[in-house]
Write a protein that binds this DNA or RNA. Sequence first.
DNA 1: ATGTCC
Length: 475
Amino acid sequence: MDISQLQALQPYLWTLPKTAHEERAEVLLYGSQPLLKSMDEKVLEQITNVATLPGIVGAAMAMPDAHWGYGFPIGGVAAFDAEQNGVISAGGVGFDISCGIRCLRSNLNLADAAPLLQQLADRLFETIPAGVGVEGTLQFTPQQLDQVLAYGAHWAVKQGYGDTADLEFIEENGCVAGAQPYNVSTLAKQRQQGEMGTLGSGNHYLEVQVVEHIYDQATAQAFGLHQGQLLVSIHCGSRGLGHQIGTEYLMMFVKAANQLGIHLPERELACAPIQSPAGQQYIGAMQAATNCALANRQILTHLARETFGEIYPHAVLETLFDVSHNTCKKETHEFHGQTRTLYVHRKGATRAFGPGHPQLPARYQTTGQPIIIGGSMGTGSYILAGMENNPAFASCSHGAGRAISRNQALKKWQGKELIKELKQQGILIRTRSMRGAAEEAPGAYKDVDIVATDTEKAGLARRVAFLKPKVCIKG
DNA sequence: ATGTCC
């Protein structure tokens, strides 16, 4: 990104000054100068487009891991006021609705578990369905899926997947309100019939990680984390169902925008007023897809526990947290001294509630919520904690963020060689797609250490622990 | 992200 057009407000906060007659909200980018320089040019163009949408409150913001996305950049945050003609955008949520990360802490230490890690990798690869269009062993009718869409992880627990103890540590306690399964098409439900309890492809994964470094002992202790401990992180979303909803509502929004005379800087930013019928229908469908994703991660949690139990009979996996990073949520925020109800789009951005937030479980009241920055295949991930006075409507980075495109990555790396190199580093990759592995090469991502550091320096969240991958089941 | 182009 050409940063000469940007103005530094603080060392880790930048803005794009407006030209004379430009009518838009403020644009803010979070991150250090080198990080912004390495960001693709499209991020600035896209986040500036977002700033022109009706009813936006405060600034259109790009997180430190931002990169080009469909309409909104991934790593984009924007809040809208329904009372001021604010809009909801399917591209602003992302096509993988409620994609997110479930993190489980184990009672195992790497030192004890190491001799059986290869066996664990092989078994997880057999038991965790992963890959494009790969279906699981579960099949549901559209009617049964209506239950999934209405009750989320509660439904999954009731069916015997996991434990009620998990629910407290899932965002919204495992089920979001306002889901409208009847606003999800039959086709979307059909696509999901065999895909519950599956990982999907692309950047999705199930990873076994070791806590390699602790930044904040007190918070790590509150989170139940210690050095050398094994964790499991599951990154996936609402699969074919969410994608189908995104596709259908995007088309509906394009039509609605034309009819209502909403100017779209580009088609990909198609949106509808929150208070319009199209907007309300999308919100109901999006909430249903969120429940689908929460149930999906709950089933995968159960599958992971079964497999861990086979290899390590005394293994216990407890939910640290489950948080989505492709959402639009109705939330209350203090803004310029006023309490406002806002619809916060977080696309490739994680919610980051600080200490004392009423929606956090008692365990995290004093620390703030656990936040997971998922790294690329061979690098590492971070666990952070939410802070008071987060400047971005309680949002922060969600991952390393791509640095180069999938096509460029394919030209630069070969999956088979990458997997061999990673094995030499003690990281076991299991995947059905060598192409996917090349696209997901660690070198195709930003430096996760810089993203996490900049996230902290920008005041978005604070680092608690660094995790190193040991086993990675890739989609 | 995605039955990786209905």
